[in-house]
């Protein structure tokens, strides 16, 4: 078992988060810890609460109870824009580019309140070479994969410390998805930690260093890709009850136990 505490304290520490959508309870006491340099994946079926969790961490949603600590300090009540300038930057579900702005203008908006760091617009153009010659184009006409890249670029130029990726693969062909995920190592190299939500389980398992599976607002599995078996993931994903350990089958290896 790897020792996660070797890099210093956790970058992100979420404790017992309870989140409601109106009267519906979306998350029931979620906890997770992300250490610097990790790629932490949240998997689970539709409606499991993954995106809600990410949005709450980004500050777009208020938790009913629980706490979120970033770089050791409590940010539970911090406004989303303040979290962004502190280094928590999210690439939202569905891209959410600014339709009336060009590609480069979208990136420039990302730079508006950027922290100091290695990422600049030019470096994003190196990461995605096709962007440079199309930087004056309206993003609305671009393909899904291209838009996703622009959205990632917009987040990168803000020089995040913790990058939140919400459903990168949504609506994209598998080939495109792989190409996008292929740039992850370069992002990691620049010192960015990643917390991502992904419906495509195999894709998540391929890139993640740690993962958590959610089902109807509860954590059903936690560990590293090396530790969990395919059967465990399936069971946790779909919530198969074989009657052995209460509601969820299989054991839940916790990386904290090491």
């Amino acid at each position: 078992m790897s020792d996660r505490t070797g890099n210093g304290g956790p970058l992100l520490d979420v404790r017992d988060l309870v989140v409601h959508h109106g009267q519906l309870r979306a998350l029931s006491g979620i906890s997770l810890t992300v250490y610097p340099g990790e790629v932490y994946a949240l998997i689970g079926a539709n409606g499991a609460g993954k995106s809600t969790l990410l949005r709450t961490i980004a500050g777009l949603h208020h938790p009913t109870s629980g706490s979120i600590a970033y770089e050791g300090r409590d940010v539970t009540g911090l406004r989303p824009e303040k979290r962004a300038t502190a280094g928590i930057v999210m690439v939202p579900e569905g891209r959410r580019l600014f339709p009336s702005l060009t590609l480069e203008e979208n990136l420039k908006v990302g730079m508006s309140y950027a922290r100091k760091g290695p990422w600049t617009i030019d470096r994003v153009y190196e990461l995605f070479p096709w962007m440079k010659e199309r930087r004056g184009q309206q993003t609305a006409q671009m393909s899904g994969g291209e838009q996703q890249s622009v959205a990632i670029g917009r987040a990168l130029v803000a020089n995040p410390r913790m990058l939140l990726l919400d459903e990168l693969s949504l609506g994209l062909a598998p080939v495109i998805v792989q190409r996008i995920y292929a740039m992850l190592p370069q992002v990691l190299e620049s010192g960015v930690t990643i917390l991502l939500v992904e419906q495509d389980v195999s894709q998540a398992l391929r890139v993640a260093t740690h993962l958590q599976c959610l089902l109807e607002g509860h954590v059903t599995l936690e560990g590293t890709p090396a530790e969990v078996t395919r059967e465990q993931v399936e069971a946790a994903y779909f919530g198969v009850n074989d009657g052995s350990n209460g509601l969820w089958s299989g054991s839940m290896p916790s990386s904290r136990a090491c």
Partner: peptide, 13 residues
């Protein structure tokens, strides 16, 4: 004007 939330995510109040 396009997308208030997305702007927030980029650090804009």
């Amino acid at each position: 004007a396009d997308d208030r939330e997305a702007a927030q995510l980029s650090g804009a109040d």
